[in-house]
Design a protein around this nucleic acid. Structure first.
Length: 277
DNA sequence: AGCACA
């Protein structure tokens, strides 16, 4: 049997293949390198302060004691920002185990019922023992399993955090919408966007020219201002439009300059739009 | 983690 283009299964495969290569729509991080005694609460505490964080889940894959986690954000950018902030950190100083974080293959499809938990545990261990023979092949986890596994556990969790934060975000959104007529700032998923970017983690001898050269390749780039804060330079880069700033943040987040000596650039929205003049 | 200019 062939799979003609209208075959739903064929379409699903096409879509999944696309997700493998283009992950710009993915808001979920896949976290591995966790110690096998990690708790869902620890994962939640790791991500809860990250801008745009939504919820997370810990998953016992059933492959040995392997544990992985998924952290979901309100948008792709927030997810990428958290990825760069946390990837490679020592999660447990005792064992020296290092976190490995990447964009998930696809978004968590967890239903967002009001009152659902800020974090969730998926345990495939018992089931895996039962069908040990048939699940013997390839990888340790699959997104389909993840989506199927979590519905039943959702209701057990009474954490209010998720709903609380999204309500706050909605309030802020309204407040800003009223005040900010020219949309120099907007809220997206609890993140205050700004068309000026704050750039940190630059090397001590990063120059304004060096950075300006990189930034001027992007449409909408206006002005760069640098200053040394405690020896380490920081920079503010202003763009015409938020969308243009977004693009730059997305593409340059974590990237290295010739002068970088302590890892890639860290880029956030500035707290306020750069003054004209 | 570090956010100035007015």
């Amino acid at each position: 049997m062939t799979h003609p283009p209208y075959d739903p299964y064929y379409l699903l495969q096409q879509q999944q293949q696309q997700e493998y290569t283009d992950r710009t729509g993915v808001n979920t991080l896949f976290v591995s390198g966790l110690p096998d005694d990690v708790k869902a609460r620890e994962i939640h505490n790791l991500f809860r302060r990250r801008p745009g964080f939504d919820s997370c889940q810990l998953k016992y894959t059933g492959r040995g004691n392997q544990v992985v986690a998924f952290a979901t954000f309100f948008n792709h950018q927030s997810a990428v920002a958290a990825l760069h902030a946390l990837n490679g950190i020592k999660f447990d100083p005792q064992t020296g185990s290092t976190l490995h974080i990447e964009l998930a293959r696809s978004n968590s499809r967890r239903k967002r019922k009001p009152g659902s938990g800020a974090y969730v545990v998926i345990d495939k261990r018992v089931k895996a023992a039962a069908n040990a023979q048939e699940s013997s092949s390839d990888e340790g986890y699959s997104d389909a399993d993840e989506a199927a596994g979590n519905e039943n556990i959702d209701s057990a969790n009474k954490d209010v955090l998720v709903t609380a934060t999204s309500e706050i975000a909605a309030d802020l959104d309204n407040a800003v919408a009223g005040v900010d007529e020219r949309s120099e700032k907007t809220f997206v998923g609890g993140l205050q966007q700004c068309s000026t970017l704050f750039i940190a983690n630059l090397g001590p001898n990063c120059t304004e020219d060096e950075l300006k050269q990189v930034l001027s390749n992007y449409p909408g780039f206006n002005v760069l201002k640098m200053r040394a804060k405690g020896g380490m330079p920081i920079a503010f880069a202003d763009f015409e439009e938020i969308e243009q700033a977004n693009k730059v943040m997305e593409e340059l987040q974590g990237s290295l300059l010739p002068s970088s000596d302590r890892g890639g650039m860290h880029i956030e929205y500035a707290r306020s739009k750069m003054r004209k003049t």
